[in-house]
Write a protein that binds this DNA or RNA. Sequence first.
DNA 1: AAATATTTTTAGGCTGACCTAAAAATTATA
DNA 2: TATAATTTTTAGGTCAGCCTAAAAATATTT
Lengths: 217, 217
Amino acid sequence: MLSLTEENYLKAIYHLSDDGSKSVLTNDLAAAMNTKAASVTDMIKKLSAKTVISYEKYYGVNVTSKGKNEALMVIRKHRLWETFLVEKLGFSWDEVHEVAEQLEHINSTRLIEKLDEFLGFPKVDPHGDPIPDNKGKLKIMPMVAIDQLNIGYQGKIAAVKDSDSQLLKYLDKIGAKPGTKLKILNKEAYDESMEVLINDHRIFISKEVSQNILVVE
Amino acid sequence: MLSLTEENYLKAIYHLSDDGSKSVLTNDLAAAMNTKAASVTDMIKKLSAKTVISYEKYYGVNVTSKGKNEALMVIRKHRLWETFLVEKLGFSWDEVHEVAEQLEHINSTRLIEKLDEFLGFPKVDPHGDPIPDNKGKLKIMPMVAIDQLNIGYQGKIAAVKDSDSQLLKYLDKIGAKPGTKLKILNKEAYDESMEVLINDHRIFISKEVSQNILVVE
DNA sequence: AAATATTTTTAGGCTGACCTAAAAATTATA
DNA sequence: TATAATTTTTAGGTCAGCCTAAAAATATTT
Ligand SMILES: [Mn+2]
Ligand SMILES: [Mn+2]
Ligand SMILES: [Mn+2]
Ligand SMILES: [Mn+2]
């Protein structure tokens, strides 16, 4: 059993490791968790003792398969709750993250199964992020941010980065949500700003924005 | 701001004080919280410093009006979540308490307002307990357990005690839920068992059970 | 009103999750 | 390859929430 704090650390490690594919450095984790490196070292030892990560002194940490599964269960809960807040309670997608950060730690298998069913077994959350199934299986779609793509690209928005609430408000305003049609009309070499067609509306977006709109590769 | 632990202590104090009407002794609180008296004394000092209770050494604690309000907001959340679990997720009424004990600590005014609306502003929870409004106003109905009533009494079940999950399962089986018609047919003087009509079904119940079925006085 | 029993508080310690400052290991640079 | 810079760990301390054992206050008996 992990404490709330341990769950948050493990989730951060999982994300920083790109879904478990690379090792995570102490300082990066400290930055992500808004703590000091010394605190991270303390926690790393505890998580290591609980066999959810493996740890080689001075060379960073890796999630074990057990840890990966536990991280995915927390992520599952987070994304199901976000979906509930938007679909059932009428939250907008920029308001859900903070609350989901709390709800993801509620401990009840029955609750999360019932919630999943109530929501109609959604595959993605409001930001387009995939929801792991109850076995911890995650359908990973390889995605690119549209700032990496060229003029003429056409496709559908698959997801948006859900980190910043102000950004989400703006994306909402310009209609950039998962499922929406998108075409790249022009790209300015100087600042990498773009002219795009979102749902047949012509709009100019900065690189800062285009980095946060994802499509399936 | 109260911590999760402080919220739980305050709620227990509120309940043990009969909704704030009498003072609560250290040992009783220790028993309710499953801790030791020394730990209770520590916590009492903290809650007192936060002005949610008043405390006279050796003579127990009383909730202040601020404390009463904060306790009622936690109770409001608890009962709204229980209602959600039963009405929307299909939990049975004997399964909800544990989960609601966790959910009641989620901190988001917006969430609880939206949830209230989503549930259609319910007045009582699945066990018949009244749900405080968003101002902390509680509609107190004076209730009696039916073991206190005489042969011939007729009325409707208003609430049941929600402490024991096994009892709730049994009450469910015999159809004793809030809103159901009830009539007392007979009472055995020796062990205070009763013969009652619940929803027109004749049934015998022990005093242990009748103590937990409440009607409006 | 003393003596005894009970309740409550104080004293001192532990653990989890944090911190700062100093030491150790690694990496980069001259 | 020695020196400097950076990263990470260790050492030692704080605070919340718990504990046991002892002391103090209150309540009950005789
Ligand atoms: Mn989120
Ligand atoms: Mn999301
Ligand atoms: Mn309950
Ligand atoms: Mn209830």
